[in-house]
Design a protein around this nucleic acid. Structure first.
Lengths: 339, 339
DNA sequence: ATGAAAGCGCTAACAC
DNA sequence: GTGTTAGCGCTTTCAT
């Protein structure tokens, strides 16, 4: 049996259709003026040979690779995943593929990847980190770059992230709406930007609602369940008159730990205390007892938005700069609403 | 100020060094015979212009893109992440990049991606799923394909996965070693391959150790914490004479739920009951009280191995076929060892 | 030891 | 309308 291992090229199609390579290109790309009959003949030939245009050659002549690089500053984490999903959403629709680079937080490694991405002539780059915190800019590049979730320290760069401050306000407004009047904020390390922003939102919304909070109502620790349990103990140790009836937590892990701690201390959630988390991380949110009301930073949407901004810039549009903060959404479950 | 926006090419370097483009190529790639002095001159010129060879052009002439595709059958999940890390490990070292495709479990979408990857002339493909279960083969392709974690249903394909059966034996042998003699296996849905394989390992190791187990000692449900808590209730409901003193769980989530359930029922872990999980998922393992002893499927290593097998095949080596099952490792923590 | 020329597979400009 | 030509940026013979 005759073999024809090699992948067919335009010339093979041209030969089979009895036309020139240039004509094949036009027919396949719908360019120029072709007789319908000719175009059909080419299409048939291409079909018959299962011809698929070589993307590499196309990139070389076109100067565009229809590829974007994705650089994670930290290893792919729980936050990066939904982001990636959103990015793929936006890019996939435009036939753009994603080249993956895991910088692992090592600046040297990162620079290496950036240069590799440039050599590969990607059309643009999305830089993501695992937390909505500030990271070093990768600098001025000949292609557009957008930072997703974690912010660039260069105000000339464009960052797309979630609005932590607004998310916190959402939580507090909800707590107030369900009748809570003595609130606490239990969150992660004080040097994390998201901890600070959420605290600002917490305080602003509490003030606006006429709810008194003071320094003692803000408990900062780590992002762990263990800290949530510890914080529950601290809150319960207070004299009854000062006990809180609503807690906004900086993460679902903290909220879960806190909920466990409260329950084990004999407090009822949400009967006596309402708890609201942050992240809408299904694993935590649904395993908690009761399931957690939480603030959803909408990371998939964030990914979609950042990729679509990038695409606009690649197509010659304006990239913009500064921080674009997308609103969060409150997801209601049982931990916050007293019967 | 004179502008020179355009990225430098070999010709720019050649001109600056006063040689021909061909010579530049040789100098930069260490090919052919060049005078040291000439080579140095070229290197200097390249350095000065910050010349970086165009990867696309190189791919076109070389016929290799130094790119592999990664197709996840399901959205990127907790299992895919460490896998990706391992794959990046192996590929990054060989200057190979990863093109990401999320098939989202949709066969049509998957086929589209496969064809896209072929158009882009990737050198090979890694197919991953989120569970060590069986998935449909993507079929015969002109480039090597390796399945990581989830298995191909075609025995001619190569699958690299973890040895669930051996992992389960490890757990049981440990339970026996710490003096447990009445064991149960609490796991996920019975139609999952990993549930079945781990059960086989459980029964085999129990039999080998002379530990009696019967059908009542195998409790299958879902992969959730809630099921773990339920199972704890079921086990504690038994008459004291039939109570177990060691439980091997099919996942860390189940193990955590079970541990919580036992503790809340007044049983001491590991004092009265030893618990061993599966996955070594840090979030579960370290938040559990006490921290969980668990079987680690070593997914990063799995990723490394699958990528390195792929690279071998790309370089003309034999790909192999069938299922390669990597051993798991037992990670000791407090949930299993009585004081 | 180096330069000239051809070509990877495709598209775009210009002939006819 | 369609064919011809040139060229994207690089590597690789093949002369010299």
């Amino acid at each position: 049996m005759a073999r024809n291992d090699s992948v067919p090229t335009v010339r093979d199609v041209a030969q089979l259709a009895g036309v020139s390579p240039g004509t094949v290109s036009k027919a396949l790309n719908g360019q120029g003026k072709l007789r319908d009959e000719t175009r059909q003949r080419v299409l048939d030939a291409a079909e018959k040979l299962r011809f698929q245009p070589n993307h590499v050659a196309r990139s070389l002549v076109g100067g565009r690779t229809y590829t974007v690089g994705m650089l994670t500053s930290d290893s792919f984490g729980r936050f990066t995943l939904p982001l990636m999903e959103g990015i793929e959403d936006s890019l996939g629709a435009g036939q753009v593929s994603t080249l993956l680079c895991d910088g692992r937080g090592d600046p040297l490694r990162e620079r290496h990847y950036i240069s590799e991405l440039l050599n590969r002539r990607v059309d643009g780059i999305v830089v993501t980190g695992r937390r909505p915190d500030v990271r070093r800019s990768v600098g001025q590049l000949p292609i557009p770059v957008v930072y997703a979730l974690s912010r660039s320290d260069d105000p000339d760069d464009l960052t797309v992230t979630n609005d932590d401050e607004q998310g916190a306000r959402l939580a507090v407004e909800h707590l107030v709406a369900v009748g809570r009047g003595r609130l606490a904020y239990v969150s992660g390390p004080g040097h994390h930007l998201s901890t600070v922003l959420r605290q600002q939102g917490f305080e602003a919304a509490a003030g606006a609602a006429g709810v008194h909070v003071d320094g003692g109502d803000v408990l900062l620790g780590s992002w762990s369940e263990a800290w949530g349990r510890t914080a529950a103990g601290l809150l319960m140790r207070r004299p009854p008159a000062e006990r809180v009836d609503g807690v906004f937590c900086g993460s679902d892990q903290i909220a879960r730990g806190l909920t466990d701690g409260l329950r084990e201390a004999g407090m009822q959630v949400p009967g006596q205390v309402s708890v609201v988390g942050f992240d809408n991380w299904d694993v935590m949110v649904s395993a908690a007892r009761p399931p957690l009301t939480t603030v959803d930073p909408e990371l998939v949407r964030l990914g979609q938005l950042s990729a679509s901004r990038l695409l606009t810039a690649i197509d010659g549009g304006e990239l913009g700069s500064g921080v674009v903060a997308q609103p969060c959404e409150l997801v209601l479950r049982e931990s916050s609403v007293p019967d």
